[in-house]
Amino acid sequence: MESLINMVLLSLLAVVTIGVVRLRNLFAVIILGGIYSFLMASVLIVLDAVDVAMTEASVGAGISTVLMLTVLYMTRVEEAKPVHTPMLPIFVAGGTGAVLVYGTWGLPAFGLADTPINTHVGMAYMDLSIPDTGIPNVVTSVLASYRGFDTFGETTVVFTAGIGVLLLLRRGVSLARLRRKQQEEESKS
């Protein structure tokens, strides 16, 4: 049953992806992106990743949709017709896909407990978490305690990206304004 729900949700995800790739109206694409994020969150719940599902639902469907719509408000909604034929991109993407599909034959099947990923360090945390930290949610204890240094790095990345956006977008000497001024001066002379 689990794998059936999983398969249905993943198929829906693929259908939405086709819509995202094919549509040229960016507003529709962004809304489809929100649907995509919620579907992805549902898939993640089926895959037992509840913390990740919560993050994906609030970040993917919430914040990034709002940000994209804000940017779309300043630009054009309709995407221009492509000038080049898509032969080369299809070849590149298709070739990559073929190699990756070939690679899946060497991977262990879905949902097994005795695969390499499920027999080493990840599962050790399950037994250690309560005696070491007293935290039942192992994702939190690994995130904040066992791999605290890792999370420190991630926090710094968020910090850096925030600073980058502020540097780019905060009102100051704007390049566009300089350019406009230059053009005005040129048209006068």
């Binding site: 913390d51 919560m54 609030s58 970040v59 935290i135 904040a144």
Partner: peptide, 19 residues
Amino acid sequence: DYGPGGGFQAGVIAAAALI
């Protein structure tokens, strides 16, 4: 600590409320 959640999710939800 006891259910799904943590600083990342809570931060995004609080920001979403203000947005």
